[in-house]
């Protein structure tokens, strides 16, 4: 966020601050707090954001309150990343930011200035699936498929972090990704398969 504000430039920021002050002074009692909040938000609406998603650089203008998850799903139309709770409790929205797994619902889009994001859509090389994607199909590591992108992103990270040395360890480090269809044993099989093959990559 800090980085982003610096980039925006002092002049822009001052302009907005002045407008904000004018707004609060000019309409002391008439506007209710809620409306005021919204007008304040509107002033800061167009914050520039540059980030790379699956190798594509995007130069965007986003509201500061937009989460990375909603940016991906609603503005970039990358709906492979799923919303399962929006509170960081289920792992369905797991993506990689600079190679590390995070819950994209718990980070604001603007906090990712200059970062490299990889989503489920960025894993396969054309028709060649990532080994983790193949392993999930082979081991039947899903049923409905909704938690699957998050599980796959987590599975790749789990191995990269060095947390796939035993079934028990994989179970522990994959427990942030809930699967309500209950495919857990097959998910562990898939991660173990990729670990064993030594075929994991980002």
């Amino acid at each position: 966020m800090d980085k982003n504000l610096k980039k925006e430039g002092r002049r822009d920021f001052l302009k907005k601050s002045t407008a904000l002050a004018a707004l609060t002074i000019a309409t002391p009692a008439i506007i209710k707090a809620g409306e005021n909040d919204e007008r304040i938000a509107a002033l800061f609406e167009k914050i520039p954001l540059n980030l790379e998603v699956n190798g594509v650089v995007h130069s965007l203008s986003v509201e500061p309150r937009v989460t990375l998850l909603d940016l991906l799903r609603e503005q970039l139309h990358l709906t492979g990343t799923k919303k399962g709770c929006d509170y960081g409790q289920c792992g369905a929205c797991t993506v990689h930011v600079d190679g590390k797994r995070i819950n994209s619902c718990l980070t604001l889009a603007v906090m990712n200035e200059g970062k490299k994001i990889t989503t489920i859509e960025g894993l396969a090389d054309g028709d060649n699936l990532h080994p983790m994607q193949n392993a999930f199909i082979k081991q039947d590591g899903f049923q409905c498929g909704y938690c699957t992108p998050g599980q796959i992103m987590s599975g790749i990270a789990c191995i990269n972090e060095g947390h796939a040395n035993s079934r028990e360890e994989v179970q522990e480090y994959m427990s942030g990704n809930i699967c309500r269809c209950g495919a857990y044993p097959n998910i562990v099989d898939a991660v173990m398969q990729v670990k064993k093959e030594g075929s994991n990559h980002d």
């Binding site: 799903r73 139309h77 990358l78 709906t79 492979g80 990343t81 799923k82 989503t119 489920i120 859509e121 894993l123 396969a124 699936l129 994607q133 193949n134 999930f136 199909i137 082979k138 039947d140 899903f142 498929g145 909704y146 699957t148 992108p149 796959i152």
Partner: peptide
Amino acid sequence: IDRVDGIQKVTGTAKYSAEYD
């Protein structure tokens, strides 16, 4: 046989109800 919709589900191309634009 493997799931016929497996590829869609592991690549994120399977579309659920709130994912149409």
